[in-house]
Amino acid sequence: MNANNYLVLAAILFTIGAFGVLVRRNAIIVFMSVEMMLNAANLAFVAAARITGTLDGQVTAFFVMVVAAAEVVVGLAIILTIFRTRKSASIDEASLLKY
């Protein structure tokens, strides 16, 4: 099978994730979209590892997962803090930092 297909799938997932970041207002869903983009990137790494016949791509994906886990913890804590003060999880609410 053409190995490109994996990469194309990764591209599609990445684009959908990015679109989700742009159009959804719920901070948690935005965050999920970011996770989706990370997963798409991971998929591309793993597919590339297989294409090149080395394991480095897989190691990179592994590190991405670790970093993503750390990022989720901090990100969700931030969302919680915002929710506590604003009683809302909408990221449009936190728009005071402007001109």
Binding site: V21, L22, V23, I91, D92, A94, S95, L96, K98, Y99
Partner: peptide
Amino acid sequence: VRSTQSGYTRSYALFIF
């Protein structure tokens, strides 16, 4: 140009994208 600094995170994300 200032008006682009709307404060909306999604707006900034759109520029990045």
